[in-house]
């Protein structure tokens, strides 16, 4: 479904490489997480796949078609929700369909279906400033899914939420992922979240951003209805990822973050 081949990225002419020869293939319906320390380029990679940034070299293909920019088979859920404050939840969720030129009645009906699925029907006519962070991100998810993308890109979508809301939304995301054949690329800082949600966890290192190791997670699905944390495999993978990341963090404490030195282009990964 998603095929990333030898992607390099550096910001500016002389900038240090943020991503070096990054290749990754994601199968249809697969849930893949990217995890790594700040500055490992995971958000940069997501933005390249989304079409918001261009790779310095290398190719990205979605469903066999070269992906050269934003396209309607991809949707993004942002870390800071990025809802339009002047639109109600419903109008925010319907945004993608509005851009595609769908009639108001039809797009609002479809957006409403997603809001209902995400438990937001009572808040459809509220503005983002009037609802909680968790609800805002549900609207963000509805806005992404309403255009029925093949590939869902999620950039630390639950990073700005409190722990309880976060866990709740993780469960909901699993339900959605199961009910569709959606392929998901998920960027996160949380090992727990990555293992809980993913079929595969890609651990990235810094200077330059690259894949250090990947882990297949075979824990039984769905994972929200049993204590997956009690499974030996969970503890094993979690421990290994932690020791890899600890080593990465130990190498870099005094060096500036790659992303932060690249002209302030991308400091959020």
């Amino acid at each position: 479904m998603l095929d990333i081949q030898h992607v390099d990225k550096s910001f500016g002419q002389e900038g240090p490489p943020v991503l070096d020869d990054f290749s990754l293939a994601v199968a249809e319906g697969e849930f893949v997480s990217l995890i790594g320390p700040s500055g490992c380029g995971k958000t940069t990679l997501l933005r390249i796949v989304a079409g918001l940034l261009t790779a310095t070299s290398g190719t990205v293909a979605v469903a066999g078609v070269p992906s050269l920019g934003p396209s309607r088979d991809k949707a993004v859920v942002f870390q800071h929700f990025n809802l339009f404050p002047w639109r109600t939840a419903l109008a925010n969720a319907a945004y993608g369909l509005e851009i595609q030129g769908m009639s108001r009645a039809e797009r609002e009906e479809r957006a409403m279906q997603w809001l209902v699925k995400l438990g937001l029907e009572r808040y459809a006519h509220h503005y983002p400033g009037e609802i909680s962070g968790g609800m805002r991100q549900r609207v963000g998810i509805a806005r992404a899914l309403v255009i029925e993308p093949k590939l869902l890109l999620m950039d630390e979508p639950f990073g700005a939420l409190d722990a309880l809301t976060r866990e709740h939304l993780q469960g909901e995301l699993q339900r959605i992922a199961e009910s569709t054949s959606l392929t998901i690329l998920f960027v996160t800082h949380s090992i727990d979240e990555a293992v809980y949600l993913s079929d595969r966890v890609i651990v990235m290192g810094t200077h330059p951003g690259r894949i250090i190791r990947e882990f297949q997670v075979d824990l039984r699905r769905p994972r929200y209805d049993y204590n997956f944390r009690a499974e030996p495999q969970y503890a094993a993978i979690r421990g290994e990822i932690w020791s890899l990341l600890e080593r990465e963090l130990a190498i870099t404490p005094d060096e500036p973050l790659v992303d932060a030195t690249a002209g302030g282009v991308d400091t959020r990964s």
């Binding site: 079409g51 934003p70 309607r72 942002f78 990025n82 339009f84 945004y95």
Partner: peptide, 22 residues
């Protein structure tokens, strides 16, 4: 806010749509 413009860009909004909706 550049992050709001990102939403328009990933949604494939035209320049006219970017201006009127964002």
């Amino acid at each position: 806010d550049g992050e709001l413009l990102d939403v328009g860009r990933v949604t494939c909004a035209s320049e006219r749509q970017m201006v009127t909706t964002i």
